[in-house]
Amino acid sequence: MSLAVELRLRVHDLVETYGRLLDEDKLEAWVELFAETCRYEIISRENREQNLPLSLMLCDNKDMLRDRIFSLREANIYNIHRDCHVIGLVRVTQGVGAAFAATASYALFQSNQEGDSRLFSVGRYEMDLVEDDGRLLIARQIVVVDTGAIPTLLATPI
C-alpha cells in the first residue's frame, strides 16, 4: 500500500526536527517529540545480531527519558562538544502495532570547542510513530549503532 505524499513529508519533517533539536542542544524540546508511552534505546549491532538484549542507553518510559536529560543538565560531566546529525533518506512504511514506521541511516559527527571534528557514530534509526491529536509522535526509537566501540563516552542522545 502506498502512503500519501503528505504523510511522507510529515515523517520527513519529524526526522529532520529530531536531528536538528539534538544538534541545537534543545534536548528538552527533543523529548517532547516522543509520545507519553514511549521507548528510547541505543543498542549495538553486536548485541542485536546475537539476540542479546543489553543496550547502551535504555529509557522505557518518558519519565526515564526526562530523567536522562535532566541528569545531563544537572549532574553529568562529559566532553564539551557539538553534535552534527546527517540523516539519510527516510523510508516510511505502514507500522505494525503503530501507525507508521520509519527507518533511516545516520552519521553523527562530534566537534569539540577547537573545531576538531570526528565521526562519533554511524548506524540506523528504527522508529515507530503514532498520531496523537493530529501530531506525529515517536512511540519507539531504536538506534542500532554500528560504531559499537563508543569513542570516549556517550552522553547526548543519538
Binding site: S44, E46, N47, Q50, L52, P53, L54, S55, L56, G148, A149, I150, P151, T152, L153
Partner: peptide, 11 residues
Amino acid sequence: RVLGYQRQRIF
C-alpha cells in the same frame, strides 16, 4: 546468562 556487551574506546 550473558545479557550483552558494551565497548568503549578511550584516548
